[in-house]
Design a protein around this nucleic acid. Structure first.
Lengths: 147, 147
DNA sequence: TCGAACTATACTCTGACAATATATATTAAA
DNA sequence: TTTAATATATATTGTCAGAGTATAGTTCGA
């Protein structure tokens, strides 16, 4: 139940671009320095985000990348589904063929319900929402009791 | 964002025991046949569940394992935290040392909020809840639009 | 005392993921 | 028009957690 590096780096990247929205393109090498992410790895993440029209690029010197829409119109869900290969608790929610027990499985409906809840939250949270709420209060993380 | 086999098999196991609660111990070989899980792998999963007093065992012939409490007193959260090694979206929620950017990270608070939501749902769902809701309606899974 | 069951530890194997390497194409500025 | 900085595309290597197996030992009821 961990996010992959692609998902984590990808959200970092998009938040960085969101910060600089309206200020022209930002080069990959700049982003790489700021975020501590290898240049070549960043370039791989950018490709699907471009195809989905979340990012626009400008080639040549002084070129780079930028959001193609305002930060409030891009949700975390959109980003993560593009970058995470399996973004659900269990495979049987997206592929019917992976398990023969689907018809009688008692817990599959629950995984689906949990996924729906997560999707709702992630869809309702935009890049702008994240930036605003973090700017306000850098409150210490809430308790994580082990049980 | 996939559950590991340990988590999936573990919940299967516990649901199987929940079904037979009150009928005495169930042998590992029986469980293995019913659930299509290797005997040796099952035995590994049982150990932490026993240590946490969710399972009681009886040795010798006709021995086996059973829930040590009613199914309504065992939550999915309890089971999954025992079996999943990293049960949070990002490591920095549980280990402070893994990232130097924590102080300024804009998205960590969001991961924490998402985890809290998930924990709430999983805590409020017991083995009995799962069995009851699945017994009622084996409704087809809800839509999973890609975006 | 026998066998069926549980306990413990160590080991191997595999695949997804992270990261790097190489080569090519584009284009603004000098 | 040349150059340098940038983006694009594909292929390759490396790494590690997780899945599964193997072996040896312990307990206890019939």
């Amino acid at each position: 139940m961990r996010l992959s590096t692609r998902g984590r780096y990808g959200t970092r990247l998009m938040l960085e671009l969101a910060k600089n929205y309206g200020e022209g393109p930002k080069s990959v090498s700049d982003i790489s320095k700021n975020l501590n992410i290898p240049v070549k790895y960043l370039e791989q993440l950018i490709i699907p985000l471009k195809k989905a029209a979340l990012i626009s690029s400008v080639r040549g010197p002084k070129g780079g990348h930028m959001l193609s829409r305002p930060a409030e119109e891009i949700s975390l869900w959109h980003i993560l589904t593009l970058l995470e290969t399996k973004f659900s608790f269990v495979d049987c929610l997206t592929d019917d063929g992976v398990c023969e027990r689907i018809a009688t499985c008692p817990i599959r409906p629950f995984w689906n319900e949990a996924l729906r809840g997560m999707r709702k939250l992630f869809r309702e949270t935009s890049l702008l929402d994240v930036l605003i709420s973090s700017r306000g209060s850098q409150r210490p993380a809430a308790q994580n009791p082990a049980d």
